Amino acid sequence: MGKTLVIGANGTVGSELVRLLAAQGQPVLGATSRATPGPGQVWLDLASHGGLDTAFDGVDRAFLLVPPGFVDQHLRLAPLIDTARQRGLRKVVLMTAMGANADEAAPLRQAERQLEASGVPYNIIRPNWFMQNFHTFWLQPIRTQGRILLPVGPARGSFIDARDIAAVAAELLLRSDLDNRDFDLTGAEALDHDEVAALLSEASGRAIVYQDIPPAAMLDALLAAQLPRPYAEFLLRILGHFQAGYAERTTDAVQAITGRAPRSFRQYAADHRAAWAA
Rank of each mutant, 00 (worst) to 15 (best):
residue 191 L to G: 00
residue 184 D to Q: 04
residue 178 L to A: 13
residue 201 S to K: 03
residue 181 R to S: 12
residue 188 A to M: 12
residue 199 L to D: 08
residue 183 F to S: 04
residue 182 D to H: 10
residue 187 G to R: 04
residue 195 E to N: 05
residue 208 I to V: 15
residue 205 G to I: 10
residue 192 D to R: 01
residue 197 A to I: 04
residue 193 H to T: 08
residue 199 L to M: 14
residue 189 E to I: 13
residue 190 A to R: 06
residue 199 L to P: 02
residue 205 G to H: 04
residue 178 L to G: 01
residue 191 L to I: 03
residue 185 L to V: 06
residue 199 L to C: 06
residue 210 Y to F: 15
residue 188 A to Y: 01
residue 196 V to I: 15
residue 183 F to I: 07
residue 197 A to K: 00
residue 206 R to T: 11
residue 184 D to V: 06
residue 189 E to L: 14
residue 184 D to A: 10
residue 200 L to T: 04
residue 181 R to L: 13
residue 181 R to E: 13
residue 209 V to R: 11
residue 204 S to M: 09
residue 203 A to I: 11
residue 189 E to M: 14
residue 191 L to P: 01
residue 190 A to C: 12
residue 180 N to D: 15
residue 192 D to P: 04
residue 189 E to V: 15
residue 192 D to F: 01
residue 206 R to M: 02
residue 201 S to I: 06
residue 202 E to L: 14
residue 197 A to M: 08
residue 190 A to H: 02
residue 201 S to V: 07
residue 183 F to L: 11
residue 194 D to G: 04
residue 178 L to N: 04
residue 209 V to K: 02
residue 200 L to S: 02
residue 208 I to Q: 08
residue 182 D to L: 08
residue 207 A to I: 09
residue 190 A to L: 10
residue 187 G to S: 10
residue 201 S to T: 13
residue 196 V to E: 01
residue 184 D to L: 01
residue 192 D to N: 15
residue 184 D to I: 01
residue 190 A to N: 07
residue 194 D to Q: 13
residue 199 L to A: 14
residue 200 L to I: 15
residue 207 A to G: 12
residue 198 A to N: 03
residue 187 G to M: 11
residue 183 F to T: 02
residue 210 Y to S: 05
residue 180 N to A: 12
residue 187 G to I: 08
residue 195 E to Q: 15
residue 204 S to I: 10
residue 185 L to C: 09
residue 208 I to H: 06
residue 208 I to M: 12
residue 200 L to G: 01
residue 197 A to F: 08
residue 190 A to M: 10
residue 209 V to P: 00
residue 188 A to L: 14
residue 194 D to S: 12
residue 190 A to S: 15
residue 204 S to W: 10
residue 185 L to T: 03
residue 188 A to C: 11
residue 181 R to P: 01
residue 209 V to M: 00
residue 210 Y to K: 01
residue 179 D to C: 03
residue 183 F to K: 04
residue 198 A to S: 09
residue 201 S to C: 08
residue 188 A to E: 14
residue 182 D to Y: 05
residue 199 L to R: 15
residue 186 T to Y: 00
residue 178 L to H: 11
residue 178 L to T: 13
residue 185 L to G: 07
residue 189 E to A: 15
residue 209 V to Q: 10
residue 182 D to K: 07
residue 197 A to S: 04
residue 193 H to R: 13
residue 182 D to A: 14
residue 178 L to Y: 12
residue 196 V to A: 03
residue 184 D to C: 02
residue 200 L to A: 06
residue 189 E to S: 14
residue 187 G to Y: 00
residue 203 A to D: 00
residue 202 E to H: 14
residue 195 E to D: 12
residue 210 Y to P: 04
residue 181 R to K: 13
residue 209 V to F: 03
residue 209 V to D: 03
residue 185 L to P: 10
residue 209 V to W: 00
residue 206 R to H: 08
residue 191 L to A: 02
residue 193 H to C: 10
residue 185 L to N: 05
residue 183 F to W: 15
residue 199 L to T: 05
residue 179 D to I: 05
